[in-house]
């Protein structure tokens, strides 16, 4: 158990968590106006398609895959019990990983070469793209060189992550990992930590509630019916427009 291992795998996760929670709350409260991803499709639409679609669908699947292995490792191991199913899972995950890479590279080229898109690019966008690129490359490298990641992730890393959540980090398994895997894990913590300070925040406001609401929305800023009713104190007729 060396000092760097302790720092990266026992301390960094908590720093990242703190930054994530504190940063998100602070950003939402102080700069709620900016909690979104600044779309540049208006400025450039065609190249965006070839970048953003493979990127987003790739990252959705890969992220949900990691999440599943983290949350229900036993189910993943059970699924992997059959070699055919294991191979299907790995190949699917790898192809979606490639799709992220292709999309991300496309997005970066577009961002750096299109003069209009450059105008709406912030420093943090560049930092984030570089981070994500490194993370994807490391992930693909891991998948290629250290086979059956879904199994060893579920068997070794999921318990490690849970141990962090429980507040008693057990870094034995993760310390023994080869360095690309370690870097991938560190990258994940870093992205998690900078999350609230990047355009990633749009993930937290994904508009899934749209599915549940009626299409039309009418708002009465001033509920005159309630106001006329002497039984309701006027402060109850609050504006609902928040």
């Amino acid at each position: 158990m060396t000092v760097p291992n302790v720092f990266f795998f026992a301390a960094l996760p908590y720093v990242a968590m703190f930054l994530f929670l504190g940063g998100t709350i602070q950003r939402y409260r102080s700069r709620g106006f900016q909690v979104s991803s600044l779309s540049s499709q208006f400025l450039e639409g065609r190249a965006l398609f070839w970048g953003t679609v493979p990127f987003h669908f790739g990252i959705l699947v890969v992220f949900l895959g990691h999440l599943t292995a983290f949350l229900v490792p036993r189910a993943v191991l059970a699924w992997n019990g059959d070699p055919l199913r294991l191979i299907i899972l790995q190949v699917t995950a790898f192809s979606f990983g490639l799709s992220i890479l292709i999309g991300l590279v496309g997005l970066m080229i577009r961002r750096f070469t299109n003069p209009r898109v450059r105008m709406v690019t912030t420093r943090m966008d560049v930092v984030l793209e570089v981070l994500l690129l490194a993370q994807v490359l490391l992930g693909l490298w891991t998948a290629l060189h250290y086979r059956w990641g879904s199994s060893w992730f579920a068997a070794d890393l999921s318990p490690y992550l849970w141990s962090i959540l429980r507040g008693e980090p057990n870094i034995a398994a993760v310390s023994a990992m080869p360095w690309p895997v370690k870097l991938h894990i560190i990258g994940a913590f870093v992205i998690f930590g900078v999350f609230p300070f990047t355009r990633l925040v749009h993930l937290l406001v994904a508009p899934l509630h749209y599915l549940a609401r009626p299409y039309q929305r009418v708002m009465w800023n001033w509920d005159r019916k309630a106001v006329r009713n002497p039984a309701t104190p006027w402060s109850r007729a609050r504006p609902r427009n928040t």
């Binding site: 709620g32 106006f33 909690v35 979104s36 991803s37 600044l38 779309s39 749009h202 406001v205 508009p207 509630h209 749209y210 609401r213 039309q216 929305r217 009418v218 708002m219 009465w220 800023n221 001033w222 427009n241």
Partner: peptide
């Protein structure tokens, strides 16, 4: 999708809540 746009009951004006709009 965000539900940022609404029609005002009082005068029927259709408005976009800039704080809720998420691009």
């Amino acid at each position: 999708p965000s539900g940022a746009i609404y029609k005002r009951g009082e005068d029927g004006i259709v408005l976009i809540n800039q704080k809720v709009c998420r691009a």
